[in-house]
């Protein structure tokens, strides 16, 4: 069959992957360093004490809880809107359809700073004070596309005739949605939600514009990066963020990887 990859290609690909992954390993390593003042490498010693210090910090806890709350609500909104849009666009053709697709992608296609400043100036113009809800509005806006993309990919892979078969066997639109579409869409929606959650959980650019005095975990981290107070605590928070985004993303992958012959049609 096909020839083997050349050694040069293997090395180049290997270096590329190493470049992509090695930096995060250093973040994890630094969470255990005994050095407090600088980023000295290699760490002079290893310790677990910074985890205890971090967990005792109320500002970290407040930021974490706020981030989780924002991510949860933004995900629920994105799930509703994204699924509706996917249902409307999956197998239809009408004038303006492309414009709507573009509209859904726009919040992540445009640089985050534009989404951020646009929302901020709109809130200002309307005299809406910054709050928990202004953060949620920003996050939900760019999370819709993630759910939408997952749902529409699954809807397109399903044989369109299974919906017709359901109608044919006597089920009305609601029954068809409940007994046929939803069970087949379920894992894609779950995956979309997890990605939306992860996206919201570590978003920082839009949040800096739509948050008032409140600090989500990424905002907390950003402040620490610009004006460091206690570096080891930042290191530990970074590890927590890695863990909290890694798991939903991995789960989303397993939920949506190719499931063999996807539909009964085969």
């Amino acid at each position: 069959m096909r020839s083997k990859a050349s050694l040069k290609l293997k090395i180049a690909a290997g270096i590329g992957l190493l470049f992509l992954h090695a930096p995060l390993a250093f973040v994890i390593l630094y969470a255990f360093t005994t050095e407090e003042r600088s980023y000295q490498f290699p760490p002079p010693g290893l310790t677990l004490k910074w985890f205890g210090v971090t967990f005792a910090r109320p500002d970290v806890w407040n930021a974490l809880v706020l981030s989780l709350r924002v991510a949860t609500i933004a995900t629920v909104i994105a799930l509703t809107l994204g699924t509706m849009a996917a249902g409307a666009l999956a197998r239809t053709r009408f004038f303006g359809r492309e414009v709507i697709s573009l509209l859904i992608i726009l919040p992540i296609a445009l640089p985050g700073i534009i989404t951020g400043i646009a929302l901020r100036s709109a809130f200002n113009l309307l005299d809406i004070p910054f709050s928990f809800w202004t953060i949620v509005v920003g996050h939900a806006t760019f999370c819709v596309v993630v759910v939408h993309n997952n749902a529409i990919a699954r809807l397109r892979r399903l044989s369109p005739s299974i919906v017709e078969a359901s109608y044919d066997l006597g089920a009305d639109s609601f029954q068809t949605f409940r007994f046929v579409i939803l069970p087949n869409l379920g894992t894609a929606l779950l995956a979309g939600s997890m990605l939306a959650f992860a996206l919201s959980f570590d978003e920082v650019i839009v949040t800096t514009f739509t948050a008032g005095q409140q600090a989500t975990l990424p905002i907390w981290m950003l402040n620490e990066l610009i004006r460091p107070r206690q570096r080891p605590v930042t290191n530990v928070v970074a590890v927590i963020v890695i863990a909290l985004t890694f798991l939903p993303i991995l789960a989303a992958y397993y939920l949506t990887r190719e499931e063999g012959p996807a539909s009964g049609g085969g």
């Binding site: 017709e164 109608y167 009305d172 009964g264």
Partner: peptide, 20 residues
């Protein structure tokens, strides 16, 4: 009248079995 109110049934070309 929509398909779900007709006393006819269809065998689809791709069979359209529910995968779930």
């Amino acid at each position: 009248s929509p398909p779900f109110q007709r006393a006819v049934n269809t065998v689809f070309q791709d069979y359209a079995l529910f995968p779930h």
